[in-house]
Design a protein around this nucleic acid. Structure first.
Lengths: 121, 121
DNA sequence: CGGCATCCGAGTAGATACTG
DNA sequence: CAGTATCTACTCGGATGCCG
């Protein structure tokens, strides 16, 4: 219909639930980093995803793994090594995220300017 | 670079801030509904965006207006009438959101299935 | 190294009542 | 009708310490 999705559909399908994770700010950054660096370990991710805590990072990783965006591979060495990477499914989502962030990158100046103008009123 | 955006950019630009609003679950639904029904009043939005409270709805509307996604037009009739609609900028973002939700719609079954499989482990 | 358990504080959402 | 005000409840994030 006019190229518009009917948002009413959203109420009757798990889209909200799925989007809640998929559009989470930390999850987005994790996926973007795994798109850029194909394989990352826990502490590497923690360094790149600046400001994230252990707790939140491990929570998000677990959820992203549960939903099938990423895989977790454990190497039982000493010290232990764990590698995270995107699944094919995750790559598919990554493409969408990249488009979204490119849009935001292109327009963030506009938004900042809008906010200033709005405050003046 | 391989068609991948460098997520490190995200740390030095307001992308996180912008995304926080733009990717908020309620904001997404508001924008999608305004894409589907070009003009909506406060209580219409409240009905469509099922489950949202007065407080959160008015907060999101104010923020979306401040960032330039929507416009608020007040008609000083009795009873008062207020109409919300997308700006050109909002329509531009709507396109991205539609792509994203279509992706989610197409793959939500996969995700649900992934979750089930994950739990069994 | 890669987490998990615990605790705590802040912010956020929801319900309700009220007003121009 | 379109919000605001208020209060409560609760989730969520951050910090810390510990353990395999």
């Amino acid at each position: 219909m006019f190229g518009h999705i009917d948002p009413r559909v959203a109420e009757f399908c798990p889209i909200r639930d799925v989007m809640a994770l998929a559009s989470d700010k930390w999850s987005i950054l994790i996926i973007l980093y795994l798109g850029y660096y194909p394989i990352l370990r826990f502490n590497q991710l923690k360094k790149y995803v600046f400001g994230i805590s252990n707790k939140v990072l491990s929570e998000r990783l677990k959820n992203l793994e549960a939903d099938g965006y990423i895989v977790r591979e454990l190497f039982p060495e000493v010290p232990i090594r764990v590698e995270y990477s995107l699944t094919d499914f995750g790559h598919s989502y990554l493409e969408k995220l990249i488009e979204l962030t490119e849009w935001v990158n292109n327009y963030s100046d506009v938004i900042i300017e809008n906010r200033k103008t709005y405050k003046k009123k």
